[in-house]
């Protein structure tokens, strides 16, 4: 299957498609934490790097099978998410954001000085096991599980915490526990994405997971629409493609990138798909139909 795909798709486009898939997984994780549960995390790349390094080191130095490395990376990231979540999720908004930035920085500095991780030079020669089919199969599974979760009792409780924490607690929702749960699940996906990234890029170093990477992931969630799965997917696609498409403007690339973000947020403050529901679209269409019918009378 993968051989077939690489035969027909240009390597450049294939690479972009892979990165889109990995970014969707990462952004869906952050969407659980920030978009759905409303806990502003600006350190998602930190958890991604934990997954990337853990899985890469396991694969390279312990010779563990790829799937095991991938799973272990995700689990270790989830464990750290859990550990960090307990004390920090009592904080709200800006304060939580600062703590998560700090945590991601600590992780980055740790890997900068971590002998088995190659310090500042990073790790190279990671087996390139991440394939197109694997990434996109995982994307589909994760989207389905995410959608199921968000329409369930637990998912609704996540949204309720974002919308009004006091009212959520008055409905019997243990907000502390659920926030830690969202954080852990989101970190798991960050770790999984990190592992896939490491085994695709062949080479990782600490600055790949710096603050800007966290911001990029946050942008995907915010641009697409906080808490919306289709929105997050759209955001990931756009923000992975945009820098590529802006290659035409060469050195002004970042300028355009920033300007486009500003413009989009002015016109769609809730994100592209943040407040779009099938029900509202249907209602609008029906409203129009009724209007037409009346005028023809």
């Amino acid at each position: 299957m993968d051989a077939l795909i690489s035969q027909y798709i240009d390597p450049y486009y294939l690479r972009i498609l892979m990165l889109i898939g990995i970014n969707i997984i990462l952004a869906l994780g952050l969407n659980l934490i920030t978009g759905v549960t409303g806990q502003l995390s600006m350190g998602h790349a930190g958890f991604m790097s934990i997954g990337a390094y853990t899985s890469a080191i396991l694969s390279m130095q312990m010779g563990s099978p790829f799937f095991l490395s991938l799973l272990a990376g995700a689990m270790v990231a989830a464990f750290f998410g859990f550990l960090i979540g307990i004390p920090t999720l009592r904080l709200e908004g800006d304060y939580l954001a600062m703590v998560t930035i700090g945590f991601a920085e600590i992780i980055r500095v740790f890997f900068l000085n971590f002998e088995p991780g190659g310090k500042a030079v990073g790790l190279s020669g990671i087996p390139q096991n991440t394939t197109f089919v694997l990434v996109w199969t995982l994307v589909i599974i994760i989207i389905i599980l995410n959608a199921k979760l968000l329409s369930s009792r637990i998912g609704r409780a996540f949204y309720a915490i974002r919308e009004n924490e006091i009212a959520a607690e008055a409905s019997g929702i243990n907000s502390t526990r659920l926030k830690v749960l969202a954080f852990t699940a989101g970190s798991f996906l960050a770790g999984l994405g990190g592992g896939l990234y490491a085994h695709y890029m062949y080479f990782i170093r600490p600055q790949d997971f710096a603050f800007m990477k966290s911001i990029e992931l946050l942008n995907m969630v915010v641009l697409g629409g906080m808490g919306s799965i289709p929105g997050t997917i759209l955001g990931s696609v756009i923000l992975t493609l945009l820098p590529e498409m802006l290659r035409i403007v060469a050195e002004y690339r970042l300028l355009f990138y920033g300007a486009l973000l500003v413009i989009l947020m002015i016109f769609r403050p809730n994100g592209l798909l943040g407040d779009v529901r099938v029900y509202d679209i249907k209602k609008k269409l029906q409203g129009k139909k009724v209007g037409l019918w009346q005028s023809s009378n």
Partner: peptide, 21 residues
């Protein structure tokens, strides 16, 4: 009033049964 503004009316009530499910 403290409702879950960006949830549907039905979902607001569904969240209400969190404690007994």
């Amino acid at each position: 009033i403290r409702l879950f503004n960006k949830l549907s009316v039905l979902d607001n009530v569904r969240v209400g049964s969190h404690g007994v499910s």
